[in-house]
C-alpha cells in the first residue's frame, strides 16, 4: 500500500493551508474526547520519545507538550538551557545533535531567536515542532486558539466545532504585534480559516511593513471595538518603554487596554482571549480578566489535545 506523504515538521502556520489546519483541529477534537475519559491516555505513540528542548524559559508550554506526549504514551525528555551545557558555550547544533543521539523521535524546540527550529530541522532526522521562536511563530498556540474560538462559538455536539470555519468572524489582535510570535501565527491561522483579522496597536508596536499580511490595521481600539467578535489581547513586555515605543504602561492601558469601560462596549457574546501570562491592569483590567477567565483557562486546557494532534500527526505513520 502506497504511503501518504506526511509532514515531518511543524515550523509555522505559514505554509499550512486551510485543509492542513482543519485536519489538525479535527484530530484535536478527537483528543479532547480522550481527555474526558476515565483513563485520558491512548497507546498511539508507544515506544516514541519526545524531547522538549527549551532555550528560553516557559514552564507552561513545556508542560503542555510533555503532557500531550505522555497522553499519547510517548516517553519524554526535558532539556532546558538553564540546566544544560548551553551555559558552557555549546552550540545549538551540538546541543540538538547530542539530544538526538539519545534516540528521540521529535524535538519540541523553543528558542529566543527566529528560525532556530527551522535550523534544527535541517540538522536532525527527528521531527521538529516549533514551540515558539523569537518573534517569528508559535504555531501550536495559534492552533489551540483557533480550536478555543471554534469551540466557544459552535453549537455543542459538533465533532469539529464549527466545521473548522471562521468565516464571517471579525478578530482583533491587540497590542505588541511587532514582537509577538503569537500574533504572527494567529493572524495567519485565523485568516486561513476565513476570519477577518485586524491588528490594533500603536505604530511603534506594529511590524514596520504589513505587505503581504492578510490583515487590516487600526491604531484606535475604540473605533473597531464594537465590530469585533473576538478580542485577542497580547502580552505587553515592559521593556518596550526603554525602547521609546511607549511613554508609559498607564498610557498604554488608556489607549489599548481592555478596561472596564471598553469591556462594556464589547459586542454581546464577544470572546476575549489572551495567550498568558496576563499583565492585569495593563492590557486587561483585573475585573475584566476575571470575567473572561473561563475562556483563557480553556485556551490552556485545549493546549494539550492540540499538541497531541500535532505530535500524533508528525509521529504516527511510517518514516
Amino acid at each position: 500500500m502506497t504511503e501518504v506523504a506526511l509532514p515531518r515538521h511543524l515550523l509555522g502556520i505559514a505554509g499550512l493551508d486551510r485543509a492542513a489546519i482543519v485536519e489538525l483541529l479535527s484530530l484535536a477534537a478527537s483528543f479532547s474526547e480522550v481527555a474526558e475519559r476515565p483513563i485520558p491516555k491512548v497507546p498511539a505513540l508507544r515506544g516514541k520519545t519526545v524531547a522538549t528542548v527549551f532555550f528560553e524559559p516557559s514552564t507552561r508550554t513545556r508542560l503542555s507538550f510533555e503532557s500531550a506526549a505522555r497522553r499519547l504514551s510517548a516517553d519524554t525528555m526535558t532539556f532546558t538551557a538553564a540546566t544544560s551545557s548551553v551555559t558552557k558555550g555549546e552550540s545549538l547544533r551540538d546541543t540538538v545533535e547530542t539530544i538526538e543521539a539519545m534516540g528521540v523521535d521529535a524535538l519540541v524546540v523553543r528558542h529566543r531567536a527566529a528560525g532556530a527550529p527551522a535550523l534544527v530541522a535541517r540538522w536532525v532526522t527527528a521531527s521538529v515542532v516549533n514551540a515558539g521562536d523569537g518573534a517569528h511563530e508559535h504555531p501550536t498556540q495559534a492552533l489551540l486558539d483557533c480550536y478555543t474560538i471554534l469551540e466557544a462559538l459552535a453549537p455543542p455536539g459538533a465533532e469539529l466545532p464549527g466545521g473548522g470555519d471562521c468565516s464571517g468572524l471579525s478578530i482583533g489582535i491587540v497590542g505588541d504585534v511587532a514582537h509577538s510570535r503569537v500574533a504572527r501565527s494567529c493572524a495567519l491561522a485565523f485568516e486561513a480559516l476565513g476570519a477577518a483579522v485586524t491588528l490594533v496597536g500603536p505604530r511603534t508596536l506594529l511590524p514596520p511593513s504589513l505587505e503581504g499580511w492578510p490583515v487590516a490595521v487600526a491604531s484606535d481600539l475604540d473605533a473597531v471595538l464594537g465590530e469585533l467578535d473576538v478580542v485577542y489581547l497580547l502580552r505587553l513586555q515592559t521593556e518596550r518603554m526603554r525602547q521609546a515605543r511607549l511613554p508609559s504602561l498607564e498610557e498604554y492601558r488608556e489607549r489599548f487596554g481592555l478596561t472596564e469601560g471598553r469591556a462594556r462596549r464589547l459586542r454581546p457574546g464577544a470572546l476575549v482571549l489572551h495567550p498568558g501570562p496576563m499583565n492585569r491592569g495593563v492590557e486587561i483590567d483585573a475585573s475584566v480578566a476575571s470575567e473572561h477567565a473561563t475562556l483563557v483557562t480553556r485556551q490552556v486546557r485545549n493546549g494539550v489535545p492540540t499538541r497531541m494532534a500535532v505530535l500524533f500527526r508528525l509521529l504516527g505513520g511510517a518514516r
Binding site: S30, A44, G47, A318
Partner: peptide, 25 residues
C-alpha cells in the same frame, strides 16, 4: 474510534475517522 489504539501506527498513516462518543461509563 480506534485510530489511536491501532498496532500499525508506526507502519503507515493512521487517521482518526471520527470523534469517539460514549454515553455511559
Amino acid at each position: 474510534d480506534v485510530a489511536f489504539y491501532r498496532d500499525d501506527i508506526p507502519l503507515r498513516p493512521v487517521r482518526a475517522e471520527s470523534v469517539t462518543s460514549m454515553p455511559v461509563e
